[in-house]
């Protein structure tokens, strides 16, 4: 068991003929993901290796039964690409693209609000169910299939670090999800925590947050009320200077809001096992989950 994606997920890659899109589509295929179609306007009818390319997502969905789109479209055109996928009726959209303007993402969020679709990202590494499907840019080989841990994070390489430590300590993963580093994103911590709570194979969760916004505080309230499975929490950015955007568009402490200290405090109040030192995360997970 896993959440959101598995070996039956059929992926259409938007932007598949671009440098990033083709590189990562191939990586996903070699991991075993079912990449059934690609989309690049004006390149319909071409092939990317064995993958047929279509002009529109709706064509790809109609002809290949794709139910998930993976997006590498450049930022200026990405909001459009996300809405196109939502309109075409896929169940899941994974937007890797970094740098989408906030106002564009707000419109995307309103557009998909009442449609039966889940958006992961943007500005994220994607989602992987180890051993089944890799829909994103993460290195597949650091993951260990079979669970019992679910991982959810706002970051990319920091997630790889966490997953690597879990695997080194013999702890496999059910599904790992990067929800992205932008201020306005699709799926949030609570959506993922809820899914992990309901997933029979997931026995515990590692949640990786960072400075900016209050998503971790809201997640902590949810954990307090609804989670029976143990959660380990880590927050990056204790030393980040206020008022500066730390790489991610969403990683900024504004005034008293969005500080690492407040997030850690909220997690502690929700009985989350807070990992204060990243180097110890794997060991901590071992003591809690085994």
């Amino acid at each position: 068991m896993s959440i959101f994606v598995d070996k039956n997920t059929r992926v259409v890659v938007q932007g598949i003929t671009g440098k990033e899109g083709s590189f990562h589509a191939r990586q996903c295929i070699s991991y075993g993901t079912q990449v059934v179609a690609g989309v690049t306007p004006n390149k319909g009818g071409q092939m990317m290796d064995d993958v047929p390319v279509f002009n529109t997502v709706i064509d790809a969905v109609n002809q290949t039964d794709a139910n998930c789109s993976l997006i590498f479209v450049p930022a200026p055109f990405c909001a459009d690409a996300i809405m196109e996928s939502a309109d075409a009726g896929v169940d899941l959209i994974v937007a890797i693209t970094e740098g989408i303007p906030v106002l564009d993402m707000m419109k995307v969020k309103k557009y998909i609000e009442n449609l039966p679709v889940r958006l992961i990202g943007p500005n994220c590494p994607g989602i992987i169910t180890p051993g089944e499907a890799k829909i994103g840019i993460m290195p597949g080989n650091i993951h260990k299939p079979g669970g019992p841990i679910g991982v959810v994070s706002r970051s990319g390489t920091l997630t790889y670090e966490v997953v690597h430590q879990l695997t080194q300590n013999g702890l496999g993963q059910t599904t790992c999800i990067g929800i992205g580093g932008d201020p306005v994103n699709g799926t949030n911590f609570i959506d993922v925590l809820k899914a992990f709570q309901e997933d029979n194979n997931t026995q515990g969760v590692v949640m990786v947050g960072e400075i900016g916004g209050n998503a971790e505080e809201l997640a902590s309230e949810y954990i307090k009320k609804h989670m029976t499975k143990p959660v380990i929490g880590f927050i990056a950015g204790l030393t980040a200077p206020p008022g500066r955007r730390m790489g991610h568009a969403g990683a900024i402490v504004s005034g008293n809001s969005g500080t690492a200290q407040a997030k850690i405090q909220a997690m502690k109040e929700a009985d989350v096992h807070v990992c204060e030192n990243l180097g110890n995360l794997g060991n901590l997970a071992k003591t809690i989950f085994q």
Binding site: S153, R154, S155, G156, T157, L158, T159, Y160, E161, G181, V208, E210, I211, F234, A236, G237, L238, T239, A240, M246, G247, H248, A251, N277, L278, G279
Partner: peptide
């Protein structure tokens, strides 16, 4: 490499 890991490295 990566903003989240960079912040975590500063913390370390």
């Amino acid at each position: 490499n990566g903003a989240g890991l960079a912040m975590a490295t500063m913390d370390i």
